[in-house]
């Protein structure tokens, strides 16, 4: 594994000729906890979706570990290998409602990693432990609270042992009283595991608690890049100050 698990360069993406990402260059170091902030509609979700291969960029290259995900003449096989290295936690959890918590966690390990039932269950058990939900292994997603669902989604993603784990506003679909448990779990994981993390959030407190690097994406460009204290306390751009003022009220 290279020590720069994500290298993005010259990334462009437009929807119906409306530019969303206009030249993104970003290198993320191994084990980094990167928080990605920015005004609504700025392209944060689009960037994560390109990174997790849900969206094809118009131009630019993305490398994950030693494999190229996007770029000219990237073979389907290489793209596929790169894709495997990226996990995603969605705003709306996207748990599979027809499978139990355990079923959600072992589906991909069994089908994609080729693990046997017992091995997959054992590994899922340790991740469910980590997010504090081992006792919910046999529960159906519909019977869980939003916070619990999101924690299951995090465990499910980790069961695939991604090199890079993306979180797209993991707390913004939650009732306010359930935000804390998800923030705590992400914070603990950030301390305990070496997986590189990319966290999109609107909560400055969440970003401060988890991230060691903050970038701000506005109007399709990265306009800030630095440690949390610097970006939050002495941003380079007036645009950032206004945006931070708006989200911190």
């Amino acid at each position: 594994m290279s020590d720069t698990p994500v290298v993005i360069s010259g990334l462009h993406k437009a929807f119906a000729s409306q530019p969303v990402l206009t030249g993104i260059d970003l290198t993320i170091a191994n084990g980094q906890r990167l928080a990605l902030l920015g005004p609504s509609g700025g392209g944060k979700t689009t960037l994560l979706r390109v990174l997790s291969a849900l969206e094809r960029p118009d131009a630019g290259t993305v490398r994950i570990g030693d494999e190229r995900l996007w770029g000219d003449d990237v073979s389907a096989a290489e793209h596929e290998r790169a894709r495997r290295l990226v996990g995603m936690v969605f705003q709306q959890f996207n748990l599979f409602p027809h499978l139990t918590v355990m079923g959600n966690c072992i589906l991909a390990p069994r089908l994609v990693r080729g693990l046997g039932e017992d091995a997959a269950r054992a590994e899922a058990g340790t991740w469910l432990d980590r997010v504090g939900l081992r006792d919910k292994a046999d529960a159906w997603p519909a019977t869980l609270s939003g916070g619990q669902r999101q924690r299951v989604a995090i465990a499910r993603a980790l069961c695939m042992r991604p090199e890079v784990l993306c979180f797209d506003e993991p707390t913004s679909a939650l009732d306010p009283e359930l935000v804390g448990e998800v923030v705590t779990v992400v914070q603990e994981l950030a301390r305990e595991i070496s997986t590189t993390m990319v966290l999109v959030t609107h909560q400055v407190g969440f970003a401060r608690a988890v991230a060691d690097r903050v970038v701000v994406l506005a109007d399709g460009q990265l306009i800030e890049d630095g440690p949390p204290e610097q970006v939050f306390d002495q941003p380079n751009h007036e645009r950032t100050r206004r945006f931070l003022g708006a989200i911190t009220g």
């Binding site: 997790s52 849900l54 996990g87 996207n94």
Partner: peptide, 14 residues
């Protein structure tokens, strides 16, 4: 079936 279901499965590598 919501699009998010297929997307979650895609990211998981199915």
């Amino acid at each position: 079936v919501p699009a998010g279901q297929t997307e979650a499965a895609r990211v998981l590598g199915l």
